[in-house]
């Protein structure tokens, strides 16, 4: 349900038709638990261009997951507007939403693959949902598994795969329906550094090959540095800083960005403590 003040729509009309692919304005979400309210998103404004790899950083509890989950409406926003291309996501009916979700892929920290299905069957899942024909599914699965370099694991079950391989299956599954957008919620946080790098390389690769827009949530500075073009810093439900990665981390303004850099620099300069701490 999209409820927004006239103030916002006027603002929209003036400023937000500048050709941004994804436009989020005044997004608010409050969780109600018993009699207490937790305002988690307190009016998010964000514009993301087509083909960008956009990073969102913030400390635990800042609302990153909630924000990304609002984009495919796994979480229903209380207020505000999300527009992708010409489509206002927040105004879609349930049926329209199901169809639209097929165009927004998402990958998760814990992969969320189906244990009952082989790699190929997992990738086929979104195609089955979309009502594709059997022969089309087979050829698409083959194609996409080649893209993520898993052609030799087609008939493996997730239980037989390493974390990195599981995330590749997750990516393949997210890409199966040719989405315009890929959402990534801490997709590398459960992986070791080397595997993280290979998954990031894959994301970079598909961003270029498929002209895919990627929104990536992380609390690892290195991930942002490695693949993001633009970014936003989320602090306690508000965007406190946004722009190119270079500009934000070149001259950090927000507490969160400064702390991120201090911790990053700190760990590097602490030297070897041999378990003594600092």
């Amino acid at each position: 349900m999209a409820r927004y003040s006239t103030h916002t729509t006027e603002f929209e009309a003036k400023h937000c038709d500048a050709g941004h692919f994804i436009r989020i304005s005044n997004l608010r979400k409050t969780f109600r638990a018993r009699d207490k309210n937790f305002a988690v998103l307190k009016g998010i404004d964000l514009e993301i261009d087509r083909g960008d790899i956009f990073g969102v950083v913030g400390f635990s509890g800042a609302g990153k997951s909630t924000l990304i989950r609002c984009i495919n409406r796994l979480e229903e926003p209380d207020e505000g507007e999300i527009t992708i291309g010409e489509t206002e996501i927040t105004g879609l009916s349930k049926q329209e939403l199901d169809r639209y979700r097929q165009k927004i892929g998402i990958i998760f920290q814990h992969f969320n693959l189906l244990d009952a299905r082989t790699v190929a069957e997992n990738v086929a899942f979104p195609l089955e949902i979309a009502g594709e024909r059997k022969d089309r599914i087979a050829s698409r699965v083959k194609e996409i598994l080649e893209l993520v370099d898993l052609s030799d694991k087609t008939d493996f079950y997730p239980g037989q795969l390493s974390g990195g391989q599981k995330q590749r299956v997750g990516i393949a599954r997210a890409l199966a329906n040719n989405p315009d957008i890929l959402l990534s919620d801490e997709a590398t946080s459960a992986l070791d550094p080397q595997t993280t790098l290979s998954v990031l390389d894959l994301l970079k690769d598909i961003n270029e090959k498929l002209k895919l827009t990627i929104i990536l949530i992380t609390h690892e500075l290195n991930v942002i540095r490695y693949i993001c073009k633009n970014m936003a810093v989320l602090e306690d439900g508000l965007i406190v800083e946004k722009g190119s990665v270079r500009s934000v981390f070149g001259a950090p303004q927000s507490e969160t960005a400064k702390l991120f850099l201090r911790i990053d620099a700190g760990f590097a300069t602490f030297g070897w403590q041999d378990g003594e701490g600092i």
Partner: peptide
């Protein structure tokens, strides 16, 4: 819940979730 959510995010209807996720898993 993550598996159900993944299916949801792909546009799965409730019937798909029951027949293709909940029961097989």
């Amino acid at each position: 819940k993550g598996k159900i959510e993944a299916a949801r995010s792909m546009g799965a209807k409730n019937r798909d979730i029951v027949l293709k996720v909940l029961l097989p898993e």
